[in-house]
Design a protein around this nucleic acid. Structure first.
Lengths: 217, 217
DNA sequence: CTGTTCAAATGAACATCATTTAATAAAACA
DNA sequence: TGTTTTATTAAATGATGTTCATTTGAACAG
């Protein structure tokens, strides 16, 4: 039972975040409850509300930390690659690897719904932009393009990888699932970049078999 | 107050599903509750459990219906296109349109987590495969490729579109968001298909500026 | 018309949840 | 030592999903 002054406010905060993360990692988001977190750190529910405004805030804090860890993982992955294209593959692989290793926490980022609070969303968005930026840098290095196009390409590519993760990565870690995710990722990135490359000079030099028709503007 | 024998079991089931869909569409998944559905159809909670095993089952039934509607929308979209590539754009556009028009029900499909019941998941998977198939047909028509590659391409492309939807479509309908989603979709599909087309004959005829390096097998 | 049957429908009960708040106890300070 | 402050708790509130004993009313038997 947390004795008076045994832990500072920020210590309790940290303990709570770690306990909550452990619960989520082990049993999933639905298993998270204020009482469970409180008892895990040796306090009662009320104390949690002394530190966090509500459970939503706790979840958003965890999401922030998860995004930070993800960012660190991507940075780490970039140290193993040289050429921009290699780096893009590395980013995709690192993202999928993280999602596969921490499926519950990763899903939580996208499944939480903030009822109010635009402020926290801004911090959130900032962390997301940081992730985007890593891809943007590689795309810029790959080919000189108008800023607008790089912006779009970045979002399209990240979205594609995110989609692969969300369609293939289940609730419990499964190495076969992850392999499949990586395969899809390499396929999508590979062909997308090839397409980006060919349209650099001319958008329709190579008409494939079948009738390739331009999308109506 | 539902009088004795006023509605058959399947009628109540249908009423409940429609009421629940209306609640979700209007207030989101979190606003759904057994009591709310029951009172909406003029019955009490207990009666709901006479028809559905639990709320999870009701949600899965709704998801099934949503997937059916989505499928119908995609079929509809295919009637407006001629060439395979046009059709692929149309599929992507129809998917994003549906997600934008019914954000809550669309999200529910991916956010629900089945604790048990592999049986319902099979029906579920079957409906998903039907969606995949629509894309698969177009890809096959676009270019003759090994079956395995078409299989992968189908999943990669759908995943990409799904990712775009999940990253851009928020909780409340917003036409600007939807426009942005469509833009990303056209971009991703366009370059991906171009890439797929160029690699049909040779995988590296057009080396872009910057160093294009093959992904290590 | 009366009594019995039986499934449909109910509403209360249970356990759990997030959140609030009045009470308390310990530390800090006078 | 007495007062103030505040960290901490326990209990209360109202909502949730789910269960179940009870009731109700329609259909049928005599």
């Amino acid at each position: 039972m947390g004795r008076r002054g045994e832990h500072s406010k920020s210590e309790i905060e940290c303990m709570a975040l770690e306990a909550a993360e452990a619960i989520i990692e082990a049993e999933g988001y639905d298993a998270l409850s204020a009482r469970k977190v409180a008892s895990a750190i040796g306090y009662t529910v009320g104390s949690l509300y002394f530190v966090f405004r509500n459970l939503d805030e706790l979840v958003q804090r965890i999401n922030g930390r998860t995004l930070d860890q993800l960012y660190a993982g991507l940075i780490e992955a970039l140290s193993d690659c040289r050429h921009p294209q290699q780096c893009i593959y590395a980013l995709g692989g690192a993202y999928l690897g993280f999602a596969a290793r921490h499926p519950h926490r990763w899903r939580m980022i996208f499944e939480q719904q903030p009822r109010d609070d635009k402020l926290t969303i801004e911090v959130y968005q900032e962390k997301m932009d940081r992730l985007y930026e890593l891809m943007e840098i590689q795309l810029k290095a790959l080919a000189a393009r108008p800023e607008e196009e790089v912006f779009i390409a970045t979002r399209a590519l990240w979205s594609g990888i995110q989609g692969i993760a969300s369609m293939t990565i289940g609730r419990i870690p499964d190495s076969e699932e992850e392999q499949w995710a990586h395969k899809l990722s390499r396929h999508l990135i590979g062909h997308y970049l090839t397409g980006l490359g060919t349209t650099q000079f001319s958008s329709r030099v190579n008409q494939p078999v079948g009738q390739l028709v331009d999308y109506p503007k």
